[in-house]
Write a protein that binds this DNA or RNA. Sequence first.
DNA 1: CAGTGGTCTAGACCACGCG
DNA 2: GCGTGGTCTAGACCACTGG
Lengths: 256, 256
Amino acid sequence: MSTQRAEPLWLSLSDQVESELSRLPAGAPAPSEHELAARFGVNRLTARAAMQELERRGVVRRYQGRGTVVARKVEYRIGPDWIPSWTRTVAAAGVEPRTVTEDAATRRARNDERAELDLGGHDRVVQLDRLRLCDEECAGYQTSVLPAARVPGLRDVVGVGGSVYEVLTEHYGFAPGRVWTRVEQISAPGWVARRLGMRGRPAVVLVRGRLDCQRTGAPLELTFAWLRADMFDVIVEVGEWKRLPAPIPVRKADAS
Amino acid sequence: MSTQRAEPLWLSLSDQVESELSRLPAGAPAPSEHELAARFGVNRLTARAAMQELERRGVVRRYQGRGTVVARKVEYRIGPDWIPSWTRTVAAAGVEPRTVTEDAATRRARNDERAELDLGGHDRVVQLDRLRLCDEECAGYQTSVLPAARVPGLRDVVGVGGSVYEVLTEHYGFAPGRVWTRVEQISAPGWVARRLGMRGRPAVVLVRGRLDCQRTGAPLELTFAWLRADMFDVIVEVGEWKRLPAPIPVRKADAS
DNA sequence: CAGTGGTCTAGACCACGCG
DNA sequence: GCGTGGTCTAGACCACTGG
């Protein structure tokens, strides 16, 4: 029997606070660092470590000057049978979605884009840079690259807050279908972190994908989306999906 | 335009150290907290914060008493066209894989397992609990549930370090194929963290899946794998792969 | 044993958001 | 102005690893 190392103070604090917060709804205020320190008779840094642990667990979100609030991640499912709409997914979670097009410009295609989009040496592409907001808080950043010839005037058609998917369908008459999607979690590159308004290299989920027109087979769109990992619970499903998945098995008596 | 807040000391420290470490191979020793503090004339806690940032980024791994070393994640791809072998994937990354079966027991199936595995009310299942080690360090934990009637004597056939997939194929003569797989990143439940030998609730990638026999359609295996998120870079690929095979980043056009 | 990272304290100042 | 979280310091003790 190996001796169990004593649990540090900040860890037991965080466990206790987490169970207290579990009953509160998203957005409810969590105790401040000073309050916790006073209540448990510990140094503020210890209370702080506990709250930072809860932030890592996704239980709370902290704002300088405003305090700490209970958080809930938005469940974002990606599967073989559907293309998720970011706006509808977020709205379904009870959060207010908003999209802001930061930039829309036409330029020459890069080599990798030419290959992926079946373009010639002088073809041009439109690149859309968009911010994704959840309750007016920056939650993700996305770039889309489309063959300029197939989407004339895209910039104006999409406007500041429009949906590319809807525009492709309703304005241009395409039938966009997924060719592939790749998902992984990474540390945000510096320039992405900056656009997200975050310091350091926060964890983000990178979703890459390509859409083609299902009727003509013409490549339509290449997307890169960086979603804040502390705001989204991305679940990727592979394979056939006829039945419901099984819940997590809990073994023996050692629950919790 | 917002004024840019000054970058904190620990952040610029971590950026500088990261660029220094970028040339070193995995396993190389990183500077200690004391050394950093002395070199930059800062408090040890500041140097510590910098190294913790690098740990979050996956650049280093830290061990009490042993020091900090440069780390490299194992790339683990999951896609619609293949079932990844954990052992081969890890070995391909230049890391020594090992699997230890901690427990193998037969018991009655739970309701969800009966539904998923097409079992009757009194059918039994075998549950295998296995640890996944990378270079003798605990990197993941996995449970597999199989219909006991279809894999008689599984416990002894698999042994302590055997591969379930190989045993299903070669010993029992099945043709295992994926029905579905689901991947998401979560905070490890307490009992998983304990089995991984970690405190708190470290980030893990939860991979759930089900295998059937491709010939008979009989359900074979239900798996739950928890992989340490700091040791694995899990990339999930979704979609059709008819026009393009499945290599990694952006791919060139394929003439074949 | 010396050196590493892990925990904890006390106290200070700052940046930020809100009223 | 007040309270919040963010940064930083100085110093202490502990747990663990390795030679």
